[in-house]
Design a protein around this nucleic acid. Sequence first.
DNA 1: TCTTGCTACAGCGTCGAGTG
DNA 2: CACTCGACGCTGTAGCAAGA
Length: 522
Amino acid sequence: MFDPACGSGVFLKEVLRQLSLKNYQGKVRLEGWDISPAAIDMARFILLYEKDQISSKFSIDVEICHRDSLDRTHQWSNDVDIILMNPPFLSWNHMNKKQRELVKESLGDLMQKTPDLSSVFLWKGVKSISSKGVIACILPTSILDAQSHLKIRESILAQIDLYLVGKLGNDLLFSNAEIYTTILVAQSPKNNKFALSLWADHKLESSSAVLRALRRYNYYGRDPFNVVDQNGFSIYENPSLNDNLISWSPRSYKAFNLLRQLEKFSKVKDIFKIRQGVLTGFKAAFLLSKETIEALPKKERKFFRPAIVTESISNSHLLDVSYVFYPNSKDLPKIDSENDLDKYVEAYYQTYLLPNKSKLISRSRKSENTWWTLNEYRAWQVDRKPKLVSTCFGKAGSFAWDGSGDYVAVQGYAWFLKKSNIFSEKLGLAYTAILSCPFINNLLASVSNHVGRGQLDLSIRYIENMPIPDLTASNLDLDTLESLYKIGGLISSGEDFDDRALNELVLSLYQLQSNTISLLEL
DNA sequence: TCTTGCTACAGCGTCGAGTG
DNA sequence: CACTCGACGCTGTAGCAAGA
């Protein structure tokens, strides 16, 4: 048994305890490596003590080494029976140049984008287990669905089978860390059995409850009909886990079932092209409230456009509470220098840009000649085109119709039709109605991740997999479209509407029974 | 009544990579 | 090389509670 990041050796110690409880009779060799000398001292002390306590029962061989597991000079063995580890988490953003080089080199062909340091441990671990081995680790959640780890997931499945993938939905399980944690267990040889999905919501008590349930579940033996489906956590066999590379991320059992039911349904990515909004690089200088804009001289105001930020969308209703400095429009004079700034937007330049010059110029990829520009202005927003817009994080009702195309997505996304350049108001408002229906929350939970205790991540990579009716289909009932359009119009302008009628309509579009909604409360 | 601590929540900025 | 896209991983802070 090997732990390449053993710390004070708690996992190794627990293995001994478990073997002893199970009356193990054979031999066991424990190997632990760690980069911290202090941890190694503790591990040696603890394991020596533990060995002393139980050495009468079976033969124990312990080797604890002070070494860096990622150092090339230390080869990982290739016939380990059990790897149990909690490797260090280190995001690409926080790595120094040397660490980045090391990750690149260690991952080789599997290197893409911005992987986490822990992925190197995972991959080396998978290659190290014997033909009849098991690897179990605690990892950051990005291992499960980030594009940066896609090739690693692919290579893992080529070699071994997943046994359990668990997500503990609370980001504060470890003190001094704020990260969503995943449990991953995989085994060799491949046996084509279904893997278990284990899910807990964002409440702290759900994480401990699901682990208690797992112990019970294991104690009574695995049984595909034995599903744990509680309020806040679930455990179930997931037939698609071992051939799904896009996401291993566990969902609640109800969300999982709903998605399976709608497997063949059209998806957001079939109908929409979604784009990420502006990234300012320094919000305080570029985003102004409506009142502030109105205090600027009139001739400067045309250099600003209403912005989509979180407060801009409330119950599918669009509000121009915030404006962004957007001088890129075609009908405006080009601003290429500080002279131009002084000429066209003097008041704004003096009050908001100049006082922040040092901060603005320190942004990456910005220089003396470009310090007043947005980090990413998004060329597609220059032309005003009708679009659906959404916030960054949210739920049903966090979507709205921007018929004039005036709005610039900043902290949010814009949806355009894929097949047509013309996005009619009828379609726009009809989709607004669908996306404001409470049932959408169930669908969002089945494709996306929670962030910050509750709201869902509306990022492209999640939401593009959400089932959604194709209102452009030729066989669509025109009465339905008309009704949706009318309701969408009411919602969009903040007026009252018949929400029960909308629910019925949306469920019928999804071809679901109208009683599904109560069954599917998430 | 003022100060400090804590919890809940909502975005932000950097950067790898694709395109032409 | 210039330009553009979207992924990624936590950080900042308002507002309330507890303590002085």
